[in-house]
């Protein structure tokens, strides 16, 4: 294991499963290199725990290049840690100082129950997409792609909304655990494109209904979600969704 010169103290949320109560435990992270990613630092800590006969800290991760949305740590009071526009897997230890104490918790939301330690269940997001986050087009029905012309500006806006990785940082950042940024990103992407027009009314009504049923809280336009979003999804999407919702409700 490569050695670095950073010595850190971790205060990590440990919880055996969703039914048992959790608590903070303290771990030493010695000899950490500033070039390590935050998750590689956890790898080092876990490897040492296992080698000394202790149980490692459970956490979610997969692609480690900031796109799959699986990693989900709440670091020093901020989802994905102190840097803007990055996920935990892309956060590097050079963003911390030798001697720091770092507090790491899971996403906190009634709609994201803890599975173990830092891993949570985000299947509520999948159910919201299943309620309307699609264009109803079966395979084989499509006409030539260039028959649908889309102004570049609209295509770019739709792309920016579609950049959401579904990590749930917006929910974790929100004092009400609102999922408005996530839901509005999908509603916006499809509302901006001609392909999404036929179902736009049902889509926004169904997705908002499902969001409420999952136990996410209300939006109070604080903007913490936008500030903490690793993909910088804009609050404008929430405004757009509110307009779509009002239009759909009154027509």
């Amino acid at each position: 294991m490569s050695q670095g010169n950073m010595n850190l103290t971790l205060k990590v949320w440990k919880q055996k499963n969703k039914n048992e109560k959790g608590r903070f435990e303290t771990f030493d992270a010695k000899g950490i290199s500033p070039d390590m990613s935050f998750l590689e630092m956890f790898d080092v800590v876990n490897e040492r725990l296992i080698s000394s006969g202790k149980e490692p800290i459970a956490f979610d991760h997969d692609c480690r290049e900031g796109i799959c949305g699986m990693c989900s740590m709440y670091i020093n009071g901020r989802p994905h840690g102190p840097k803007q526009g990055v996920t935990t897997c892309q956060l590097h230890m050079r963003s911390f100082k030798d001697g720091d104490t770092i507090v790491v918790e899971p996403w906190r939301s009634a709609a994201f129950p803890v599975i173990k330690d830092l891993a949570v269940n985000r299947s509520s997001f999948d159910r919201i997409i299943a309620s309307g986050g699609f264009v109803s087009v079966n395979t084989g029905n499509a006409k030539d792609a260039n028959n649908i012309l889309i102004p570049k500006h609209d295509a770019d806006d739709a792309f920016n909304a579609a950049a959401c990785i579904g990590c749930g940082a917006c929910v974790a950042a929100c004092k009400n655990s609102s999922a408005m940024l996530f839901v509005s990103a999908k509603v916006s992407q499809l509302a901006l494109l001609p392909q999404g027009q036929f179902e736009k009314k049902e889509r926004v009504l169904n997705m908002v209904k499902q969001m409420d049923e999952e136990g996410f809280g209300n939006c109070t336009n604080t903007g913490a979600c936008e500030a903490e979003c690793p993909k910088s999804i804009s609050l404008e999407n929430i405004a757009r969704m509110n307009r779509e919702y009002l239009k759909a409700s009154f027509s």
């Binding site: 264009v135 087009v137 006409k143 030539d144 792609a145 649908i148 295509a155 792309f159 579609a162």
Partner: peptide, 18 residues
């Protein structure tokens, strides 16, 4: 064609084509 119909936001030219 299929992905376009689903609303996959491919890069486009100013004329609206892919």
């Amino acid at each position: 064609d299929q992905c376009g119909a689903q609303g996959v936001p491919f890069a486009r030219e100013y004329g609206g084509t892919l």
